[in-house]
Design a binder for these strands. Structure first.
Lengths: 202, 202
DNA sequence: TGTACATCAGTGAACGCGCGTTCACTGATGTAC
DNA sequence: TGTACATCAGTGAACGCGCGTTCACTGATGTAC
């Protein structure tokens, strides 16, 4: 059944096309017609390759998440949990800056209510959290795992928020040129605060 | 010309109706027909009172911003910049929790590209930043105003991010029951870090 | 090797719906005399 | 006080468009004999 190959081939092309479209026009600007035109197939072909546009978006987001994971992993050269944490945060900011719209799509996309994310999608997020937990654990060996996990989410949310508002160009956001510097200041203070909280001294 | 009164009256009702609609169904669920039905007028009446739906949303957002300002101001009883900062952050989280959809609308709403926010809208945001700058200034009297303003935005973004991901129920977000506690931990660590950064000791 | 048939990826016109905005009209209110 | 006229807030049916999804059809590919 070599047809399967052709089928997955088109599917791959559709995902790639959707990725390019989102990268150029943002999630809101993603239209079925543009995707199929770019992939060089008919409009209806989408529904042969994939359930609907939402699935296409999730496939793209999954790829983005994977690339982001790789970008964060490439940081691991640093020595000491403080440096690792700072490195992760900076890599996150850089990735967002370099992949603005694809990165935004990660957070803009919402499934129709009632439907929730498939498991394979959830798991990819767990990996992200785990990567942040590692350095936090050596930073605060006194805390139980549950709490570390919570702190990892909080740290992620904090960095994410600063990056998010900056990239959106929101009125209350940090101007983009200062983004990396401010993320570093934020995480630096946090890491310092954590250290003091544990040891009681500098 | 007492007609002006009637006109502004309907306008007020429309804004109130839009506010209720957003509070119930979120910004995405805001429809011109629902608003006018709730306000008890015809569909077309909107365009007599207001330029378009976008303006209606901005009017609602402006009210939300004002209420949020009041909620933050009600915090001011605290003694010392650390406590004030913690109080502001907590009040922010509480306000978001109690006004989920209206609060979300503040950040979801985007004007069509090219158009930018009117001045009265920008200024309302400045007030917010100013309110955060005050305690930061006493916390870091060594820093120039420009840098304080930047840190205020960063601090805002950090708190905002944690709250945002939590309320969205995002996979990487902090679970809601832990939100206030985590915001407190975040800001606590930051304040501690700032203090150490300035004084060099605990 | 050739013929008849089945399958199913791929096609694209048409469907259907949601929804913001317009516009010709109505009728209440105010003004002039 | 009454009449004619002007204004303009308010009406709601109709417009128009965007766009995801469907569906009857086509034609290339594979299978059976």
């Amino acid at each position: 059944m070599p047809d399967t190959d052709r089928k997955t081939d088109l599917r791959t092309r559709l995902i790639a096309a959707a990725e390019t479209e989102i990268a150029e026009k943002g999630l809101m600007g993603l239209k079925a017609r543009d995707v199929t035109q770019r992939a060089g197939c008919a409009l209806g072909a989408i529904y042969n390759a994939v359930a609907d546009l939402d699935e296409l978006v999730m496939r793209v987001n999954s790829r983005t998440l994977e690339r982001m994971g790789a970008a964060l992993a490439a940081t691991s050269g640093a020595e000491g949990p403080e440096a690792v944490t700072l490195g992760l945060a900076d890599a996150y900011a850089v990735f967002a800056l370099e992949n603005r719209r694809l990165w935004s799509a990660l957070f803009e996309h919402r499934l129709p209510e009632g439907v929730d994310m498939p498991d394979w999608y959830r798991q990819e997020h767990e990996v992200l959290i785990a990567r942040i937990m590692a350095p936090l654990k050596s930073l605060r060996p006194d805390l139980p795992d549950d709490e570390i996990r919570l702190r990892a989410r909080t740290l992620f949310g904090a960095v994410h928020g600063v990056v998010h508002l900056a990239l959106q160009g929101r009125l209350v956001g940090v101007p983009e040129p200062f983004l990396r510097q401010e993320v570093a200041a934020l995480v630096g203070a946090l890491v310092l605060g954590a250290k003091v909280a544990r040891t009681g001294k500098v």
